[in-house]
Design a protein around this nucleic acid. Structure first.
Lengths: 231, 231
DNA sequence: CGGACTTTTGAAGTAATTCAAGGGGAGTGG
DNA sequence: CCACTCCCCTTGAATTACTTCAAAAGTCCG
């Protein structure tokens, strides 16, 4: 199994699960490692799709920007996640930008090569369909939240979701394990940094969270879940 | 080519494009036609995934409902569209409900059979990935609109999008070719029927639209596009 | 022509944005 | 090591877009 650490990483990711080792070897032969220091951009919105990545370590942020410069955060990516799903679907350009929020290590490979191997290997294609389905459901959920819930509940839901994906147990509670500013939370929940700040201050006073400069710790997850679900 | 009208319809849809005729015949052999009169439900949210459909004629609405009964419209489906993408991804349950808003004809087939054929036929799987990618991008766009735009612009964008999918040229302008109430528009744009009504009344006074009971005609698409894009 | 559903419009209320100003922490450079 | 600077965060006050509440008027169908 452990013929190469990278092959192991690929085999554990959602996309290449259950794929024969010889296919993984073929993929690995064409792949390369690349580091992105915090703040660096992997690709911009509208960039041509040339390369496909899998996250090894670190967090990345997927954003979309409007013509008038307003930005929203579509999602965060972490270890095992696919970066640049457009390489799977065959879209010519990236619909969003991806930026490292941490120092990141990615495994990259040429997009056409992935498409080629996928078309010869239905297991990968089936995995890709399942993966896209999950991401679609995520967005459906967020759309519903944005359409039906008030800001406070949206922020609560968002924090709880982030704590699932990237939570780290600490003495003071569950810490979101990457830098997360008020502005970031605002761009995830469709509000302003001011409102996020006020909301967190309120929770802080009630002891629900413990937050600071680009850092959020959920002190009482159950209580926050109540905020998220209350009518 | 025209060995059966249904095979033709399948071949033209996005999912089975470029698939060998013998595979289409196999699919067709297991398929059946089914009518859903206006208002009837194809499946409910959380229903087990048993059957997969392609729309032949008519329009259907995909909705999601929250625990406290609030509903949002995820999208509308029309001729050629896939109904119940969960059958593609392998999800056990439908994430949303589907209802006919018109009288509809669908071609159905058992979901496990589709998955089986897809796993043996990578072209279908590749098409499915592309299809999910498109739907994902749609939702991304709507999420961005909901997060960054004011209600009037959202309604304008929504109407323009519907006119693309289901617009019919008439003497008075482009008519949305299925019954569409103020409530429906509200559930698509994350607002209330009152606000939609006021907004349409305003546009009506300016001659942009011509609307009535569950009916919307866009009289001046260019002018509406300006409303949608203005800063 | 009755009754259900859809739409309209006014008035009051409110959640959240916008505008504005100041404060604090972390890192940098002298 | 201290001061400077850049971000990021906080908080008040004013404004506003939208919702909520309420009532009435159309419109379609049997």
């Amino acid at each position: 199994m452990a013929e190469s650490p990278d092959i192991d990483i690929l085999a554990r990711g959602e996309l290449f699960r259950g794929v024969p080792v010889e296919v993984l070897r073929e993929l690995h032969a064409a792949s390369f490692r690349r580091k992105f220091p915090a703040g660096e951009t992997v690709f911009q919105q509208e960039d041509a799709v040339t390369t496909f990545y899998i996250v090894v370590v670190g967090r990345l942020r997927v954003t979309q920007t409007t013509l008038d410069g307003q930005q929203i955060i579509i999602r965060y990516l972490g270890p095992g996640d696919v970066v640049g799903y457009a390489a799977l679907t065959g879209a010519p350009a990236h619909p969003g930008a991806v930026t490292a929020v941490d120092d990141c290590h990615l495994i990259g490979m040429p997009a056409p090569m992935l498409r080629d191997i996928m078309s010869r290997n239905s297991r990968i294609a089936m995995n890709a369909v399942a993966l896209m389905g999950e991401r679609y459901q995520d967005l459906q959920l967020r759309l519903r939240e944005l359409a039906t819930e008030k800001v406070e509940r949206r922020i609560a839901h968002t924090l709880l979701r982030l704590s699932q994906q990237a939570g780290r147990r600490t003495a003071r509670g569950i810490e979101i394990a990457f830098p997360l500013s008020r502005q970031d939370l605002a761009e995830m929940t469709g509000t302003t940094l001011h409102t996020v700040s006020r909301t967190l201050s309120g929770w802080e006073a009630r002891g629900l969270v413990d937050s600071g400069r680009r850092r959020v710790i959920i002190a009482k997850p159950e209580a926050l879940a109540e905020v998220a679900e209350e009518v």
